[in-house]
Amino acid sequence: MSNTDYTRIERASRNRKLAVRTVTYILLTFWAVMVLFPYYWMLLTSVKGYGAYNAEYVPAFFTTSPTLENYVSAFREVPLARYFMNTVVFTVATTALMMAVIIPAAFAFARLEFKGRDLVFSLFLALMMIPNELVIITNYQTITGWGLRNSFPGLILPSVTSVFYIYLLRENFAQIPDELYNAAKVDGTTDFKYLTRVMMPICRPTIITIVILKVIECWNSYVWPRLVTDDPNYFLVSGGIQEIRENGFGRENIPAMMAAVVVISVPLIVLFLAFRNKVMAGVSRGGIKG
């Protein structure tokens, strides 16, 4: 074969590669646009004036006169601040209580020796197979029976424990070598001190991952809060959005609704961007959704 043949073959293969690459980027960009577009649209709509929005029979893709008045009315005309605070309280309390429950539990399963430990742990794991919907029915009956509807304890209690997170943490705790524990014991360290001074610092990445996943879960929870609250004073942001949609702003003030949507979406997006790697690693290790 002559030299020109080689150059021709090389050029053909380079062109092919380039074509494949271009198609790949076009596809990826297409999906990225699909993902980002709703976010763009909600931001855009939230800065359009009420009059301007309703005057657009054909929706405009940009606005020349952005306004912040929708954000003002989002806080003034509906109790958005209250929904927001409720959710913050709910999220912080649930996450804190859950950590207080699962860290000792994971410690017990990983470190302490007691009779039937492995049996109890297997039973615990078996619990994960019970579908959430069945648990919710029982929880609903229990919480209603205790008269805890429309209260923070009623909202928080059912989600302060999580078999899955106990499992995740226990696996991590169990990886810490026994020598460390024995050395600490020789030095006269108590179990509690060993847990807080040695185990928790070593397993900090896992603990942070669990906290982040739980915060996301709490912030977006809808089903349980909807079941146990019908008093708007106890609505979380999800319930609040639904309430705004059905009764707030006279139903037609879409820019104000979008402003509310932006306000409740921003905290988690910021959290995600700040802890991008931790969130994604955490979810791929054990996120459940869908």
């Binding site: 909600m42 996301i216 999800s238 979008m258 995600f272």
Partner: peptide
């Protein structure tokens, strides 16, 4: 691509 995971389903549903 990961963004929808961290946003409130109800909020984006409204959009």
């Amino acid at each position: 691509y990961f963004l929808p995971y961290v946003t409130n389903t109800l909020a984006v549903g409204l959009v």
